[in-house]
Design a protein around this nucleic acid. Structure first.
Lengths: 130, 130
DNA sequence: TTGACATATTCCCATATAGGAATATAATAT
DNA sequence: ATATTATATTCCTATATGGGAATATGTCAA
């Protein structure tokens, strides 16, 4: 009876932004202004129902807010909802940001210097030593 | 006949990290050291096949590397692969980090206080002005 | 009213899960 | 050789998609 398939996109922010088109939508809304559905349809070259559906997902998660303006619906980004993602991934920033401005990332341990080469593990090289 | 369902988790990093358990695994591997599957099974209280499958996904995307050590498989984080996520979400950091301190981000606490009413837009308040 | 416009919703469907159980493969130990 | 340990893979299934098409809802204008 307990069949737990893939996590629902409406579950959390991580799932919501997993969709490329939704990230595109967020990208347009990234200017902080309100945008009508039709404008998104036009700028992103996406069918209108698709845009509405994706906006619905984003709204359910809280990433966007909706306002009514005449016969249009204006959507606006609630960027704070993206903060959990930023906070999560920020913890791994030290692995690639050695040389980053000391101002921001002041000597975050030298543990990352061991990342010499970026290897993709194909079957051929999967047994190669690190 | 073109039925394009959800994007495959093995497609890109965003989908790979959408799974909570996979983020847990990444969390353990976040120390930069190599970990055996069994250790992850023990520490995360997950069934072994589940761990192996999730590691398979992470490996396909490039987030982890695999090494052989005796009869064990040691997995290690390729944190640089998380950089696209960081770069993407970083663009929205400005929305909640207005008062970001030049030297450090101590002032984040202030910004956190501003997150007073995290409003989910239900039908009742969906027409409320911003 | 009617009609045009803007957006949302419903229906159908092919596909990709993620979990569980069982099994397979691989390496080591006896 | 067999047994044990460690990990991977296969099979199954319930579910949640995301796209397309059609339709419904809602708003404004004449």
């Amino acid at each position: 009876m307990f069949a737990m398939p893939r996590a629902a996109t409406t579950t959390d922010v991580f799932n919501a932004i997993a969709e490329p088109r939704r990230r595109e939508i967020i990208g347009v809304l990234g200017d902080g202004k309100a945008h009508a559905v039709g404008e998104l349809v036009h700028r992103l070259h996406m069918p209108q129902p698709a845009v509405s559906k994706h906006l619905g997902v984003l709204r359910k998660v809280g990433i966007v807010s909706r306002r009514r303006h005449g016969q249009r619906r204006l959507y606006r980004l609630n960027a704070e909802e993206l903060r959990p993602v930023h906070d999560w991934v920020k913890a791994y920033q030290r692995f690639w940001a050695h040389q980053l401005d000391r101002i921001k990332e002041r000597a975050e341990r030298k543990a990352a210097e061991r990342l010499d080469s970026k290897r993709r593990q194909d079957k051929d090289e999967e047994e190669k030593p690190w």
